[in-house]
Structures are given as C-alpha cells and as structure tokens.
Amino acid sequence: MFKDTVIVLSTILLLQGCAAAVVAGTAGAVTAAHDRRTIGAQIDDNNIEIKSALALSEIPRLEKYANLDTISVNGIVLLIGQVANQEMKMQAQQAIENVNGIRKIHNQIRIGSNISITTKTHDSWLTSKVKAQLLTAKNISSNNIKVVTENSEVFLMGLVSDAEAAIAVELARNVSGVERVIKVFEYL
C-alpha cells in the first residue's frame, strides 16, 4: 500500500512538471505568434544575445569589473550596464560589433559603479509596472514592445507605428519611479 502511494505521488509530481512545461511552451508559442518579427528573426535575436554575451565574457576586464547586458529586437541591439570608464564602454561595443546579424547597436552603457541587487529588484518592479500599463492600453499591441529597465531608466524596443511609440512613451513616463524613457524603436 505504501509503495503504491509513493508511486502515485511521484507520478503526480512528475506530471505537474510536465504541465508547467506545456503551459510555458504554449505561452511562448502564443507570444511568438503575435510578435511582428518573423520566427526566424526571433531566433536570430536570441542567437545575437547569446553570441554578444559570449563576446563580452571573453574580455577579462569586462567580465570581472563590468555589469553588461545585450538585448536584441530585429537585429537592433541595446547594450546596457555599467563600466568604470569610457575606454571600457568602447571596448564593450567593439566586442559585439562583429556578431553576425546585428544591424545597429545602441550603446547605453553608463560610466559608474555597478548597480546593486536592490536597484535591480526595483528595476524589475518598474518593468512590471510599465508592462502592466502597456497591457491595459488601447490602440497598442504590448506584445510588440519590449521593456527593459536599468537603474530606473526604461528602454522601449520593438517594431511599432509612430502612434504606438507615442502611447508607449507617455505611459512609461507616467509610471512612478521611472526617471527617464529611452526609445529604441524600429518604426513600421
């Protein structure tokens, strides 16, 4: 009897993991289907982000002392984070310039100390608040706007119309705690 109970419970636990995987996979597929980028462009963007991270990690000085991230939407790359000086900022950009598929780089690296975990947590909260505003807004497709927050600066990326960009910027500017909104849009 005990053995049967353990088998049943184990099966249930394993199936819960499968259910979560199915839900996550379905959510990803729905998001991908509503994205204005082709599936190929979405895959290319993912590859650009991975290859850029690898290129940056190959420079010991950047790997050890900098806090850097790359986000790609349709081959347009946002390079963010913190470095100690202008030389390191340029070195980071040069490190990713030869990554295949990049059409343009927006180097928004800030010179200064790396941000704290508290600031990163606050940034995640701001991103959530901006996304919630976009999700409930009329005349805008929030699926086509990527929101990235770094040190209370909100970066908006995606393939959008002029009207969608204006709405998104206005919504983001009015979120409490957002210090600056930077557009990295590609216009339709």
Rank of each mutant, 00 (worst) to 15 (best):
41 A>I: 09
147 V>T: 13
2 F>Y: 04
164 E>A: 07
67 N>K: 15
91 Q>P: 00
64 K>F: 02
67 N>D: 14
17 G>A: 14
176 S>A: 11
1 M>H: 08
105 I>G: 02
84 A>Q: 15
71 I>L: 13
133 Q>H: 05
139 N>P: 00
139 N>E: 07
75 G>E: 09
21 A>V: 09
26 T>L: 15
125 W>E: 02
99 V>H: 09
135 L>E: 00
29 A>N: 06
30 V>F: 13
38 T>L: 05
107 N>K: 11
59 I>S: 04
74 N>P: 01
125 W>N: 09
111 I>M: 13
7 I>A: 11
54 L>S: 13
160 V>N: 02
69 D>G: 10
123 D>F: 09
104 K>A: 06
154 V>H: 00
86 Q>V: 12
22 V>G: 00
25 G>Q: 07
187 Y>N: 08
114 N>P: 09
13 L>P: 00
3 K>Q: 13
17 G>M: 09
120 K>A: 14
78 L>Y: 06
171 L>H: 03
174 N>G: 01
47 N>Q: 13
175 V>S: 02
112 G>N: 12
12 I>S: 06
130 V>C: 02
145 I>Q: 08
128 S>V: 01
84 A>G: 03
137 A>K: 05
13 L>K: 09
6 V>L: 14
43 I>A: 10
162 D>Y: 08
4 D>Y: 07
75 G>A: 08
115 I>F: 08
34 H>V: 12
104 K>M: 07
89 K>M: 09
150 E>D: 07
163 A>I: 10
170 E>V: 10
29 A>W: 04
5 T>L: 15
103 R>I: 01
47 N>T: 14
152 S>Q: 03
45 D>P: 02
78 L>D: 02
46 N>A: 15
167 I>R: 01
51 K>F: 05
129 K>F: 00
2 F>A: 13
148 V>C: 03
140 I>T: 11
155 F>N: 03
6 V>A: 12
51 K>H: 11
34 H>C: 10
58 E>P: 00
118 T>E: 13
130 V>S: 00
5 T>D: 00
129 K>M: 02
75 G>Q: 07
164 E>F: 06
107 N>W: 04
102 I>F: 05
87 E>T: 09
32 A>S: 14
32 A>K: 10
76 I>F: 07
108 Q>A: 13
104 K>V: 02
114 N>E: 11
